[in-house]
Amino acid sequence: MNIFTAYISIISIVLYSGCAQYEAPKPDKKKEISILNQKVKELDANDKKLIYRSIQNDINRYSKEADKAYSRGYNNDALIAYKLVNFYEGYHSVPLQKIEKIKKNINYKSRVHYKRALKQYMVNNKKALYELNIVMMNNPNYKYSSELFDKLHENRDIKIYVNSIKSSLQMQMLNSDGKIKSLKSIELTLKELLAYDYKNILAAKAEEVLQKHMDIIAENNLLKYKRESIKIAKQAFLEKEYVKSIEYAQKVIAIDAKCMEASNILKLAKQESKIELDNLIKSGICYYDDRKLDEAMNNFQSALKIDPYSNASLIYSKKIHRQLKTIKSLQ
Rank of each mutant, 00 (worst) to 15 (best):
I3G: 01
I3N: 07
A6M: 10
I11M: 14
C19Q: 13
D28V: 00
I33F: 05
N37P: 00
Q38P: 01
V40C: 07
E42M: 14
D47L: 01
I51G: 03
Y52H: 09
Q56Y: 12
N57G: 15
S63F: 15
S63M: 14
K64S: 11
Y70G: 00
A78F: 08
I80Q: 11
Y82E: 04
L84M: 13
V85Q: 08
N86M: 09
F87M: 06
F87Y: 13
Y88T: 04
H92M: 02
K101N: 14
K101C: 05
I106D: 02
R111E: 15
H113G: 01
H113Y: 15
K115A: 15
A117G: 06
L118F: 05
V123M: 05
L129G: 05
L132A: 01
I134E: 04
M137I: 02
N138W: 01
N139R: 04
N139Q: 04
Y142C: 03
E147R: 12
E147F: 08
F149Q: 04
F149M: 06
N163C: 02
Q170I: 10
M171R: 15
Q172E: 15
K179G: 00
K179H: 01
K179C: 00
K181Q: 12
K184Q: 12
I186Q: 02
L190V: 07
E192T: 14
L193H: 09
D197Y: 13
K199G: 07
A218V: 00
N221L: 00
K224V: 09
K226Y: 00
S229P: 02
S229L: 05
K231I: 02
L238A: 14
K244S: 12
V252P: 02
I253N: 00
A254Q: 11
A257Q: 14
C259D: 15
A262Q: 06
A262G: 08
A262C: 08
L266K: 12
K267Y: 08
K270T: 06
E272H: 10
I275R: 10
Y288W: 10
D290T: 10
K292E: 15
A296I: 05
N299F: 05
N299S: 09
Q301T: 11
S302T: 10
A303C: 09
Y316S: 03
L324N: 14
Q331L: 13
Q331V: 11
